[in-house]
């Protein structure tokens, strides 16, 4: 569905490329987790997917990106917004209206949808994310976590085929972060394709069914999160395995590769060798 073909991109005014020869395919229904240190090229990769690069960011681009077979250079960001929805890191800088329901309506109004359909979609998306109580609230009075949920809702309401999130929890407290991870996991189970760049592997790895690791503008590892996180060498790229993985190793869990706390407990209770020191 989304296809990045051998893309190299250098931002205008920058000496070295932000992405080098990156190729990636994303299929319908996937939950793709993108890991890597800050500055490894994660955000640049995400901006390719909805056409912000090359339409909004100037620079030098080689290779091409196909969204449903359409080259992103041939389509506008607005056209692509119906296919790929992008949620940014800082909720404060992406909320543009003063009330929650209006915020969700905003993108739909821009698409020129009839009012009845807008109302229907607002209801649907508020329910889906469990934030019906926020409907009439002022956007300025929301907590950081609530703001990010509203930002997700407003993108989701545009019914994109893929929802792409750039470090959605980096400004949030652990509780709100866990909530965002849960919401995304649920959406994916309902069939929404999710692509998320994150540092919080402990929360997102259990939800993902594919993971890539980026370093210096390249994709250096690709595979199932279990496979990658239980292989020691991702540390070379600055990505640390989450605590559950460290604990599983410490306790000598064999025959299972737990990513969530629950999985670890189950593995330990199943009587796998427990070596408590």
């Amino acid at each position: 569905m989304l296809k990045i073909e051998n893309v190299t991109f250098r931002y205008e005014g920058s000496k070295r490329p932000a992405l080098s020869e990156v190729s990636l395919e994303i299929d319908r229904g996937e939950f793709l987790l993108i890991a890597g240190l800050s500055g490894s090229g994660k955000s640049t990769l995400l901006r390719l997917l909805n056409g912000l690069i090359p339409h909004f960011y100037r620079g030098e681009m080689k290779g091409r990106v196909l969204v449903d077979g359409v080259d992103t250079r041939e389509a506008s960001v607005a056209q692509l917004s119906k296919k790929v929805g992008l949620v940014f890191q800082n909720p404060d800088n992406q909320i543009v209206t003063l009330r929650v329901d209006r915020e969700i309506a905003f993108g739909l109004e821009n698409l020129g949808l009839p009012r009845e359909e807008i109302i229907e979609r607002i209801n649907e998306v508020l329910k889906k994310l469990g934030i019906e109580h926020l409907r009439k609230r002022g956007t300025a009075e929301l907590s950081g976590g609530e703001k990010q949920l509203v930002a997700i809702a407003s993108v989701l309401a545009m019914k994109p085929d893929v929802i792409v999130l750039d470090e959605p929890t980096s400004e949030l407290d652990p509780f709100s972060s866990a909530r965002i991870a849960k919401v995304l996991g649920n959406l994916n189970r309902e069939g929404v394709t999710v692509v998320v760049a994150e540092h919080r592997l402990d929360l997102f790895a259990p939800k993902a069914n594919r993971m890539i690791v980026m370093s210096n503008g390249r994709i250096v590892r690709e595979g199932h999160p279990r496979e990658l996180l239980y292989r020691g060498d991702i540390s070379l790229h600055g990505v640390r395995p989450p605590s559950v993985v460290k604990l599983a190793r410490k306790y000598g869990v064999v025959g299972a590769q737990p990513l969530a706390v629950g999985e670890l407990i189950v593995a330990l209770r199943r009587g796998v060798r427990i070596d408590r020191s």
């Binding site: 909805n50 912000l52 339409h55 909004f56 506008s76 960001v77 607005a78 056209q79 917004s81 119906k82 929805g85 992008l86 543009v96 329901d101 209006r102 309506a105 905003f106 993108g107 739909l108 109004e109 821009n110 698409l111 020129g112 949808l113 009839p114 009012r115 807008i118 109302i119 607002i122 407003s154 993108v155 545009m158």
Partner: peptide
């Protein structure tokens, strides 16, 4: 840009 602002002449109104 991501939310298609200015994409069409006549926005609808919620």
């Amino acid at each position: 840009e991501t939310k298609a602002f200015g994409a069409i002449e006549r926005r609808s109104s919620y």
